[in-house]
């Protein structure tokens, strides 16, 4: 009975995954066959890969509902019951910092940024200087995401409206753009988008919504969302700050 329900849910998610991925297959197929007018190379391998993508997405979505959402919410409730703001904020920081420092997309961007900086003459061209620059950048971004989640959780506890903080953050970005070294601006803007990984997002969302639900007077829709927004805003500010620090 239980297994049957499980399989039924799996089949339904499988159908959803197929539908979710259809546009990307259509776009790539259309451009390859109609615009570039070339045959699709290694068709078998591509079909096999597509099968993996569909299966993988299905499993991921199932796991989300089974594992990531429940644990994020149950921890939020437990922290709210415990009533210790300090521990909650420490947890928020650890979650933000810990999930970002190992993020593969961030590592790739940091290495690219080091290359840009070496090209522009901001740092030495040798490997050691570049490695330490990339390392510093990664720490700057991870710190900024930790800070962002802490700020976001504090906001949920206190009930501050999200838009004041975001608009204030935008103002910070604009002001810093005027002063930051030119070659870091593009990287800084992009670093906001790459920090929030596929596993972090559901967890952080569940944490925010769970907190907003367990604190009296908070609306999960108004107060529960917004954590990701902070996590994609603060890296811009921190990375530009890092560039200015090195430049000075």
């Amino acid at each position: 009975m239980n297994l049957q329900r499980h399989l039924l849910a799996f089949a339904r998610t499988l159908g959803d995954s197929l539908r979710d991925l259809a546009p990307i297959f259509i776009v790539i197929g259309f451009f390859q066959l109609v615009v570039l007018r070339q045959p699709i190379p290694e068709l078998e391998q591509i079909l096999f890969g597509s099968l993996l993508v569909v299966l993988g997405l299905t499993l991921f979505i199932q796991g989300l509902e089974l594992g990531l959402f429940p644990i994020g919410e149950s921890m939020a409730h437990a922290f709210a019951r415990k009533g210790s703001v300090t521990w909650l904020l420490l947890f928020a920081f650890a979650l933000g910092f810990g999930t970002t420092i190992a993020e593969p997309a961030l590592i790739a961007v940091a290495n690219e940024a080091a290359e840009v900086a070496a090209e522009g003459g901001a740092i030495g061209a040798d490997t050691a200087a570049r490695a330490s620059y990339a390392q510093g950048l990664r720490i700057a971004v991870a710190l900024s995401v930790g800070f962002a989640i802490v700020l976001g959780v504090l906001r949920i506890i206190r009930g501050w409206p999200v838009h004041y903080l975001i608009i204030g953050g935008y103002a910070g970005v604009v002001v810093m753009t005027a002063f930051a070294p030119k070659e870091i601006v593009g990287i800084a803007y992009d670093s906001g988008g790459v920090t929030t990984s596929t596993i972090t997002v559901p967890l952080v969302t569940a944490l925010g919504v769970g907190l907003a639900m367990s604190i009296k007077g908070r609306n999960p829709m108004i107060d529960g969302f917004g954590l990701i927004a902070f996590a994609s805003l603060t890296p811009m500010i921190f990375v530009m700050g890092y560039g200015m620090l090195l430049d000075a």
Partner: peptide, 22 residues
């Protein structure tokens, strides 16, 4: 725990498939 295993395996398959196909 089962959910975590699903997420892990699912994400791996997903990334591997993308790497291979798209």
């Amino acid at each position: 725990l089962l959910g975590f295993v699903y997420v892990l395996v699912g994400l791996s398959l997903f990334l591997q498939g993308l790497e291979q196909a798209l």
